[in-house]
Amino acid sequence: MRKIMYAAAALALAAAGTAVAEDHHDHMEMMSKMVKDARIEVDVPGPMKAKMLANMRGHQEAVAEILAALGKGDGAAAAKIADARLGANSPGAAACRPDAKSGAQGDMPMMMASHMPDEMRALGMTMHMQATKFAEEAAKVKQGGDLRPALAELGQVVQACNACHAAYRLD
């Protein structure tokens, strides 16, 4: 009789736990529907969206490589990565440049710029210009030298990325 009572109690607890978990899941789903993403939607055609997302992932990869170089104390390598892949004159900066809409940077940057709000492009250019400042600071770091000034500049690069991602999202 005791075994039956224990089994019944265990079954009741399991059922109650399942019900609580389902209620929690339903509650979380309802909350996610109630919380609206307040970022500005940027309507970009599919292939261009893929290109923009690939550019941004490339920026993330560059930051990771920069951090790895700084971790080794190699400011010169970090500077080279930043300048080539994130800096104001890097290919990824072309759509953010002030003259991008004119076609001066090429067809793809012009098309991308035509879909980006001016404020979004300005935030992007801020990131690229800050990356150039970082590259200049990182180039000064000698093996075993003080990384703090370079890291402070790199922090500004990431903050510029965060500001854009907080304000905009691709549709």
Rank of each mutant, 00 (worst) to 15 (best):
G46L: 06
A16V: 14
E22Y: 14
H128R: 06
G87R: 07
A21G: 15
G144N: 10
A95Y: 02
P149E: 00
V158M: 12
E61M: 13
R169D: 04
A19H: 09
A94F: 01
C164Q: 01
L147H: 04
G71F: 03
A152P: 07
V44A: 01
A76D: 12
Q60D: 08
M129W: 08
R169E: 09
L147N: 02
V63K: 05
I4E: 06
A21S: 15
Y6K: 12
K36C: 00
A84M: 08
P47L: 07
A62C: 15
Y168V: 03
I4Q: 06
G46A: 08
G73W: 01
A21K: 12
V157F: 15
E153R: 15
P109L: 09
K49H: 06
A9I: 15
A64C: 04
K133V: 10
Q105Y: 00
E61N: 11
S32T: 14
M120K: 07
A82Q: 08
A82V: 08
T18G: 13
A50N: 11
A95W: 02
T126S: 14
L154A: 00
C96N: 09
N89T: 03
A54P: 03
C164Y: 01
A7P: 01
E119H: 15
A76R: 12
A78F: 09
K80C: 06
G87A: 06
H59I: 10
Q60P: 06
C161Q: 09
M110F: 07
N162W: 13
A84G: 05
A8H: 03
R57F: 10
Q105S: 07
Y6I: 14
L53E: 08
R39G: 00
A138K: 05
S32V: 11
G73L: 11
V63R: 04
Q159C: 01
M48D: 03
D37Y: 00
M125R: 14
